[in-house]
Computed example of a mutant assay.
Amino acid sequence: MTPTTNLIRIGVMGTHSTGKSLLMRHIERELRSLDIPVQRTGLLGRRAALVPLPKMQHHTVDSTRWILATGIADEIGAAARLDDAPVRVVLADRACWDALAYFRAALEWRGESVPRPDREALHRLALAHAPYDLLFATVLDPDLPVKAKHGYDARYRALVDHHTHVLLREENVPYVRVTGDDASQALAIQHALLLCDTEARG
């Protein structure tokens, strides 16, 4: 039987190497210190490459559909694994809207388009997923250094950042902007902890 407890879903999205996973790890660690059951999802990009499916600026309709469906399934599975407790928390490292931002950026980077039915099908899949209780979107700071080993395309990285925030505004999705500044990161963590602790005490 599905537990009749409060489920809090916190997601993060944004372009690569902007602190998404680090933020989620910090929130997870703090929640565990409060004895709040939590599960964190992630590694979608690496897993897509093992399928293998194209990624980054090479994303296709199929790779985007796989990212969306797998990410949503991961979140559902994470919630199911949590114990019956006053509050359960799922941390989605790459919220579902993230896949669409990466896809839109890839199309612009390549100067391509896809048929409207494909675009609408991907949008419906993202829209059908339950809204996040709290959604963070990181902000790219192009002046912060990135390890050379990653080999990121700077233009594509900037396009993902652009489409992330444009998409969320278009969809009227409430979200919290998180910069690379330590104070911004700390405020984001506090925001998540306050939400979860309030639910746990309630």
Rank of each mutant, 00 (worst) to 15 (best):
Met1Val: 14
Thr2Lys: 15
Pro3Cys: 05
Thr5Ala: 14
Ile10Glu: 07
Gly14Lys: 05
Thr15Ile: 04
Thr15Asn: 01
His16Gln: 13
His16Glu: 14
Ser17Val: 12
Ser17Ala: 13
Leu22Glu: 06
Arg25His: 14
Glu28His: 07
Leu34Asn: 04
Leu34Met: 06
Asp35His: 13
Pro37Asp: 05
Arg40Met: 15
Arg40His: 01
Leu43His: 14
Gly45Leu: 07
Pro52Tyr: 06
Leu53Cys: 03
Leu53Thr: 08
Leu53Trp: 08
Pro54Asn: 05
Gln57Cys: 03
Gln57Phe: 00
Asp62Glu: 13
Asp62Trp: 05
Asp62Arg: 04
Thr64Met: 03
Ala69Pro: 00
Ala69Arg: 11
Ile72Ala: 14
Asp74Val: 06
Ala78Arg: 10
Ala78Pro: 01
Ala80Pro: 00
Asp83Ile: 10
Pro86His: 00
Pro86Asp: 05
Arg88Met: 00
Val89His: 02
Val90Gln: 01
Leu91Val: 07
Ala92Met: 02
Ala92Ser: 14
Ala95Val: 00
Ala105Gln: 03
Arg116Leu: 06
Pro117Leu: 08
Leu122Ile: 10
Leu122Gln: 09
Ala126Ile: 08
Ala128Asp: 14
Pro131Gln: 09
Tyr132Lys: 04
Tyr132His: 10
Phe136Met: 03
Asp143Ala: 09
Lys149Cys: 07
Tyr156Glu: 12
Leu159Ser: 11
His162Lys: 14
Asn172Asp: 15
Tyr175Ser: 10
Tyr175Lys: 12
Val176Pro: 02
Val178His: 06
Asp182Arg: 10
Ser184Met: 03
Ala186Gln: 15
Ala186Pro: 01
His191Val: 02
Leu194Met: 08
Leu194His: 13
Glu199Pro: 01
Ala200Val: 11
Gly202Trp: 10
